[in-house]
Design a protein around this nucleic acid. Structure first.
Lengths: 164, 164
DNA sequence: GGATGCATGTAAAATGTTACATGATTTA
DNA sequence: TAAATCATGTAACATTTTACATGCATCC
């Protein structure tokens, strides 16, 4: 089967773009990504890469002599097929996913107006801090996507604030 | 400790609003919610409610005589405190969470322009179907929130389409 | 009488987190 | 030479999903 979880898909896409590369490098990319949804911990990434190798989506590259011990992976033809299947899954992509603010918005009428006001003040501050962080300095394209993420979320916070 | 996961927080908020109610009813609310992030399966909800009871955030209500076997839960004072702590966690609420489209957008340059075009066409169709579904018919407030979710995501899909 | 809904749970499996553990190499 | 970074992994734990299992009540 070609089915991949979102973490697997993202990892596979990462190898496709940056490979050959080590599990360590992939984990680092997750850890440094602007999203905090995945930690990119060794405990998640190393077993995940092994799984992808077992399924034939990744292949360990031959190690160069005298080099320090490390395993570099490349994506295989089957891996490319699985990646495409995951990447172009429109049904999954249309899903609204998970948003901690949206989840809370539904219940914010359970607290007082002043508590809500204070809450949104703080959310705004945290988000401003987040928006200031520099991410993906290597790629103009990714910076543009990130700028769009920031802009869209800023507008969204504003809407929820007025609504909730 | 007052720490709650988002699923625990949402479940607790649900009991606070709709209680006394059964685990079954809470699970149903998750299953019927417009977000597909949590399935609201028995395997997740029943143990979760038990955990919240063990921690003293929920209390089983005395069952009425002659009634069919069921356990209704109420939120406790400690439960209210924990709920407030979760609900007003601004740092968590400011987090961008998980979005299957955003995750994919980062890698969409790995496929051709025509594949991208077809993908976005399909995403749009799936989302239009999703937007048509009637949700939360009981509450005007929740319907407003949902309408805002739809509107914001529509705009977001448009932006990603132009950008990716 | 059969289908649907209410109600409660468990078992196996998968996934992911935190924390632990080790050692080589590079940089300040 | 000490700290940081590269690199690989495991162990314990928690959470969640899918699937299974049961039985009562209500509606058509």
């Amino acid at each position: 089967m070609l089915e991949l979880t979102d973490l697997e898909g993202a990892a596979l896409a990462d190898v496709c773009r940056n490979g050959p590369c080590t599990s360590y490098a992939i984990a680092k990319n997750f850890a440094e990504s602007p999203s905090e949804f995945w930690t990119g911990s060794a405990g998640s990434v190393y077993p995940l890469i092994k799984r992808l190798e077992t399924r034939g989506f990744l292949r360990a590259a031959g190690k160069a002599d005298g080099e320090r011990a490390r395993t570099d992976y490349n994506i295989t033809a089957n891996g490319r097929a699985a990646l495409k299947h995951w990447l172009l899954d429109a049904q999954r992509a249309a899903d609204i996913g998970f948003d901690p603010l949206r989840t809370r918005a539904v219940y914010l009428d359970l607290v007082s107006a002043s508590e809500r006001a204070k809450f949104f003040e703080e959310v705004q501050n945290h988000f401003d801090q987040y928006a200031k962080r520099e991410v993906w300095p290597q790629s103009v394209r990714l910076q543009k996507i990130h700028a769009a993420v920031i802009k869209a979320r800023k507008a969204w916070i504003k809407v929820v604030r007025l609504l909730a």
